[in-house]
Design a binder for these strands. Structure first.
Lengths: 340, 340
DNA sequence: CTGGTTACAGTAACCGGTTACACAAAGCGA
DNA sequence: TCGCTTTGTGTAACCGGTTACTGTAACCAG
């Protein structure tokens, strides 16, 4: 109830040490020389008083928050753990803090973003957590941003860190075709506006085409990159009267693959003997599934590290890459029929 | 390079709307009546100017950051995803932001905490991310804190949200003894100063004692609740000359259980036929392991939600619980020998 | 009609830092 | 020794909000 914030201010430190506040500030920020003697005195006073600079006051005066923000989607995915740790690993040593926000932010013009120029020095934007319009607006005021698993809308020049989706998907689908002689591969697409989803589908189509297999719209169902949704889609597909024949499944990502595998097993299909299933991401759990999941390894932690580094380049006016495309690698395990 | 921050200030808004800054502030914070007419005018001006209050200025003046911090350990675990989403789900609707920090913060007296009273309104402290000393210090200045998976050091009165560790472990160990007739159960202990680890070990010992099985120090090895470490400990135990007999494993948690299972399989043991393995946490992946893991379900997302709510109670001077102990539930799957 | 309340609004001090400007003393090459 | 640079420090304005204090006009019970 005591309103008085008992926190120590720079003036108290200055007084105790017998110097001016400017000197204290200079010592703290090491941005101007301070005599050896005063430095020692300050060090003592500061620790004895347990002085911690007030972040907001500092921010207000210097226009630096030492905070970077990350906008995630509101889908809780294990995928975020390596991403966050990758980001943290570069943010922390720089003395920055990480403000995190999940949710779809688009559309609500009335409520401004919880995270933005008013409380951060830069933003990491994951996938479609922000609309093109919002991106455009923020970019127009020159606010440092780096996109993750997404590229900037056309005229905008925003660095972007993403992974090779198409080539890997192509390779994996071709693997199913060539090595396992599958020709009717069910494809679980992600959300249409999601770039990862788009490129994976493109890779799928290219692989079919390159191998003379006609594309069949009936073999495309919605997976949304979410386990539950994939489970429902798959179940519905299996129970649907049409009974469209298929001989393998590309699940879109590993999370969806889990849903697919559960649905298939519940309907008495063996994996991979009856139906091979493959995913994308190589989540930590994927190697431990039954059977272990054939998938594409995405260097997610590195994506986080590189994105954060790019953001700091932007903040520090250093040169940045336009698009960083990290290589992916297909991981053959038992679920596709390999390593049997 | 243009140093001038082009952001709109409250004074510009006031001027454009022909009122004083005080009125604008009052309207924004809805803490004093403003005439209908002025309100409308302000609404218009604010959207046309794209006004967003400067968070730091606001914080400095009002002494509220609208940010809560969470301190995690630096071990990337899937466990954090439900925890974070639970927290986010209560923090966001309150209009608060979430500042996240990972790492061991204890010991470094010189470097003050990256997150604390200087930049947040309250702190969620996970397990031993903070030392007792730091906790004591922060608590002495009446800073709102809630502990997660840890209780406060004795004289301190800090709310704490944790789960039932002992009873569930007891039940699970007893299950191995009674249902599966195991008597030499290997136990992978966690870090000694971690409370979850302590209570699980206590549950293990009680179950043995209650069933007349003598405690054998040789059956305790170090798992640290980490997959890699558990894998190494288990491998070393198996290859050690002593060849101590055991007939089941309680892995400490699910992550360690994965390491244990890998090590056992590599040495030709079948799970559960030769050696049953059980864990704790019920990670999202645990149901999908080979074999599916018998474990204890921890309501982690709820832990996050409740902890965040407690913290807001503290911040808003509402009554709080001392310790919230959430119930856990044992989940029998195939890895213990059930559901074969 | 009067004194008291309420609704609405403005002025300016203040939150706790940073930093432009000013200045004294010391160091130094010529 | 003289001017000039460098080093070390202080004073006070400023960052962009909030809010205590003050004041006016409208409203209302008696």
């Amino acid at each position: 109830m005591t309103r008085r914030s008992s926190s120590v201010t720079i003036r108290e430190v200055a007084q105790q040490a017998g110097v001016s506040v400017a000197t204290v500030s200079r010592y703290i920020n090491r941005n101007a020389p301070v005599s050896e003697e005063v430095a020692e005195r300050l060090e003592q006073v500061m620790t004895s008083l347990r002085y911690a600079p007030h972040a907001a006051a500092r921010h207000l005066a210097s226009r630096k928050t030492y905070v970077i923000g990350i906008l995630l989607t509101n889908i809780p995915s294990d995928f975020f753990v390596p991403l966050l740790f990758g980001i943290e690993s570069v943010v922390r040593p720089k003395g920055y803090n990480l403000l995190i926000s999940t949710g779809q932010f688009s559309g609500h013009d009335d409520t401004s973003l919880p995270i933005g120029p008013h409380n951060t020095d830069g933003l990491l934007v994951y996938a479609d957590s922000l609309s093109d319009d919002e991106l455009t607006m923020l970019h127009s005021s020159n606010f440092p941003m780096v996109l993750i698993h997404r590229t900037a809308p056309q005229p905008l020049n925003i660095p972007s860190v993403t992974i090779e989706n198409k080539a890997a998907t192509y390779k994996l689908v071709e693997h199913l075709i060539m090595q396992h002689h599958k020709r009717r591969i069910l494809f679980l697409r992600g959300r249409s506006h999601q770039e990862d989803a788009y490129w994976r589908e493109t890779g799928y189509r290219s692989a079919l085409e390159a191998n003379g297999i006609p594309f069949d719209e009936n073999l495309i169902i919605s997976g949304e990159f979410e386990r539950e949704i994939a489970y429902k889609s798959m179940t519905q597909f299996l129970e649907n009267g049409k009974q469209i024949a298929f001989d393998a499944v590309f699940a879109g990502n590993d999370d969806a693959a889990i849903g697919v595998m559960t649905a298939l097993m519940e309907h008495g299909h063996r994996i991979p003997e009856d139906i091979p299933v493959v995913g994308f991401d190589d989540l930590r759990l994927s190697a431990f599934l039954t059977p272990p999941l054939t998938t594409v390894r995405a260097p997610t932690e590195e994506v986080g590290r590189i994105a954060a580094n790019q953001l700091f380049n932007l903040i520090e006016d250093k040169p940045t890459e336009g698009i960083t495309l990290l290589p992916t690698e297909i991981i053959l395990r038992r679920s596709c029929g390999c390593l049997a």
